[in-house]
């Protein structure tokens, strides 16, 4: 699967999300920025992302996806 396809899935299915995806075709790393993560535990944040790509994970077109999640503020601070 292409990184851009995953970026597209996440951004179109998770309202207000911005995704930066890298990977080798089967193992991917994604940084996802979305204010829906505010006040959620780390697991809940990751479940939100996994929830919108459940099909792609189940059929193994995405074999592994490592996630780093940020709110808009956290992303700005991380990139100062």
């Amino acid at each position: 699967m292409e990184c851009n396809a995953i970026k597209e899935f996440i951004e179109s299915r998770l309202a207000g999300a911005e995704a930066h995806v890298e990977g080798d075709g089967r193992h991917f790393e994604a940084k996802v920025i979305c204010d829906q993560f505010a006040e959620k535990s780390l697991i809940q944040q990751h479940q939100l992302v996994y929830g919108v790509i459940k099909e792609e994970m189940a059929n193994d077109s995405i074999h592994a996806l490592s996630l780093k999640t940020f709110t808009q503020d956290a992303w700005r601070q991380a990139n100062q």
């Binding site: 990751h46 479940q47 996994y50 790509i53 459940k54 189940a58």
Partner: peptide, 9 residues
């Protein structure tokens, strides 16, 4: 286990 935790891996 994936259904139980709604975690895909």
């Amino acid at each position: 286990i994936k259904d139980y935790s709604s975690w895909p891996t």
